[in-house]
């Protein structure tokens, strides 16, 4: 197996105001080139926080306590700001959660797509426009010219997400982080978008970190999976063995809680309270050990 492209090691994050209460607890996570990796957890587990750390766009109130985030071997948390922005821009891209707020409402799509291309690839305006049209074709947009001339609010949610997917793949990045890219969309559109992301990933051979709360989605597209609970990793394995024989009781309960179309009567069992409590106890023990080690 080749060296991982994204290598997060021992990452701890907390609010500046409360450094003793960690939001991410010594998280480690690897994504190899070309691999599709699922990052699963319930809301509040810290999934999006990990996504933001990869791009160093954490809110100002949050600070990194320890750990490293390496892109292609270079730790972005210790780099000079300018080099860091260059590295991130050239190697990684984000497909965001809400396609409406991720597009600037007062700019046309053309400008928003092309200034990325000119900024990263150094293309001329004309070349950037041709490339944008080609990308919109790739994401199955029927009339790319009209879309380029539109403002974001003139497009449907699914269309906006297609535009953002096209933008993400534009500069042939090594890594794409998709942060719950379908949650803000209608159910009918969700499947199409999911299929599109998988298709684009295959065509471009990009590593993909897919952040989701839906194990069903993970089962469909991911080779490897990391399960997150309360800001710490409870299981990190490949998808097949995760579903076949989950090691952690929380993971097992989460799988049981995922809707199953073949056995609807078993669907949506809640994660039992005692599993949650015992997992929290584990975390608290780890917290205590960590605090001790830092002293």
């Amino acid at each position: 197996m080749s060296a991982p492209f994204l290598d997060i090691a021992d990452l701890s994050i907390a609010l500046k105001a409360e450094p003793n209460h960690r939001l991410l607890r010594s998280v480690s996570l690897n994504v190899a080139p070309g691999e599709v990796h699922g990052l699963v957890g319930e809301s509040g587990a810290g999934k999006t926080m990990i996504g933001k750390t990869i791009f160093d766009i954490l809110p100002h109130a949050v600070t990194v306590l320890a750990g490293s985030v390496r892109l292609g071997g270079q730790d972005i948390l210790t780099m000079r700001h300018r080099d860091q922005r260059q590295l991130i821009a050239h190697t990684s891209a984000l497909i965001p959660q809400d396609p409406l707020t991720a597009l600037n409402p007062v700019r046309r799509i053309a400008g928003q797509m092309t200034d990325r291309l000119t900024a990263i690839l150094g293309l001329s305006r004309g070349a950037a426009r041709d490339r944008a049209l080609q990308l919109l074709n790739e994401v199955h947009i029927a009339d790319p010219e009209r879309v380029l001339a539109s403002y974001p609010h003139q497009l449907s949610g699914g269309m906006r997400q297609r535009v953002l997917i096209a933008s993400a793949f534009a500069a042939e990045p090594k890594l794409i982080v998709a942060d719950e890219p379908t949650t803000a969309l209608d159910v009918t559109v969700q499947k199409q978008i999911l299929r599109l992301i998988a298709e684009m990933q295959e065509r471009h051979g990009t590593a993909l970190l897919f952040i989701t709360h839906d194990l069903g989605v993970v089962a469909k597209i991911c080779r490897k999976v990391t399960v997150l609970f309360g800001g710490s990793v409870v299981e990190d394995t490949d998808a097949e063995s995760l579903f076949a024989q989950p090691k952690h009781p929380y993971t097992a309960a989460l799988i049981a809680a995922t809707p199953r179309y073949d056995r609807p009567e078993d669907s949506l069992l809640p994660v039992p309270a005692e599993v949650i409590e015992s997992t929290w106890q584990e975390i608290r023990r780890a917290d205590a050990a960590w605090a001790e080690a830092r002293r």
Partner: peptide, 12 residues
Amino acid sequence: MDYVDSAHIVGL
């Protein structure tokens, strides 16, 4: 806003 983050990621 998210689009400011996006622009930041892209390296503007």
